[in-house]
């Protein structure tokens, strides 16, 4: 009697869907955080620009017009609204190239981070859960890769594989997955100690399923935060590799490539590096701000 009344009372309490609750909390925190809003705004601008690139770009980014060579931007004498950011050494419209190049840079960043996060999280979770020899093998490989500076490692791999979009993606992924493996292994060790993992074991759930079904879903918040922060890192790395001539090949525009082309004309046509430099700055600042906000949101100890 007392039993059933109590559970009835408990049962009549509203059970709002957990997704709605989480979403509301997230939006509320976002509204209160100037950091998160600014980051989201910057990322949104860049993403919309990249998505709408063909419509937004006034000219074909590969089109070369002799008269547009070293055309100054709108704010310099001799510039005009036709070519807001001016023209480059080959007479191509810089604004169009930036807009279209955003696709390359963002594609590299997103593919690399997705790949690295997946591989790294999986191996990290396995290492943390399995322990012993498996853990040692995976983590010593991680240590080995971490001993090289990130960009140098990517450069070495590209030197072996040759230049190109996909080799760059591969090289950056190989250089980056180690970060996820480390973070996830630590988290997995913590989660493995939790009672629900022992409970899962106590009902006969096999090890691989515990890793995939119980450990990994619980580390997703940490991985998500790391991933946002690393998108910025990859964009800069892509710029650096393309700058060195190892990344995407001409005539495909990419931000890093544009800076590397503009380097020779830094004194005569500084606007050639100014435009792409600024968008790289904007993107990485935007993503870092948003990532910071995400980290604070996910970390219960951080001030709200």
């Amino acid at each position: 009697m007392a039993d059933s009344t109590l559970s009835q009372i408990a049962a009549t309490a509203p059970t709002e869907s957990v997704h709605n609750v989480a979403r509301n909390q997230f939006l509320k925190a976002l509204r209160r955080s100037p950091k998160g809003l600014a980051g989201l705004l910057l990322i949104g601008m860049i993403l919309i620009g990249a998505a709408a690139a063909p419509a937004l770009a006034p000219y074909d980014p590969a089109q070369q017009v002799l008269g547009w060579r070293f055309l100054p931007p709108v704010w310099a004498t001799g510039g005009g609204w036709d070519h807001i950011l001016g023209g480059d050494n080959l007479g191509r419209d810089i604004f169009s190239r930036i807009v279209v190049g955003a696709r390359t840079s963002l594609a590299v960043a997103i593919i690399v981070v997705a790949l690295a996060a997946t591989i790294g999280s999986l191996l990290g979770a396995v290492a943390g859960y399995a322990g012993g020899i498996v853990d040692n093998l995976i983590m010593r490989l991680v240590d080995f890769l971490l001993a090289f500076p990130f960009l140098l490692l990517a450069l070495m791999i590209m030197a072996i594989l040759g230049p190109g979009f996909w080799t760059m993606v591969l090289a950056l992924s190989i250089a980056l997955w180690v970060n996820y493996a480390r973070v996830v292994r630590g988290e997995a060790l913590r989660i493995e100690q939790m009672e629900f993992v022992e409970a899962a074991r106590s009902i006969g759930v096999p090890g691989w399923r515990i890793v995939l079904g119980h450990v990994l879903p619980n580390v997703i918040p940490s991985v998500l935060v790391l991933a946002t922060l690393e998108v910025a890192l990859v964009i800069i790395a892509e710029a650096a590799l393309s700058f060195l001539g190892l990344g995407v090949q001409p005539p495909t525009p990419s931000w890093g490539k544009m800076i590397s082309e503009g380097r020779d004309f830094l004194y005569d046509a500084p606007w050639m590096v100014l435009g792409p430099g600024l968008v790289i700055l904007m993107t990485s600042v935007g993503i870092n701000l948003f990532g910071d906000f995400l980290r604070d949101f996910v970390d219960p100890r951080a001030e709200r």
Partner: peptide, 24 residues
């Protein structure tokens, strides 16, 4: 052993909050 656990013998743990996976 795995075939027996949960099937022929099972366990109730102390802290139900910790025993259930929060994301399932």
């Amino acid at each position: 052993m795995r075939r027996l656990r949960g099937n022929r013998l099972s366990m109730i743990f102390q802290d139900p909050t910790a025993t259930l996976n929060p994301v399932m």
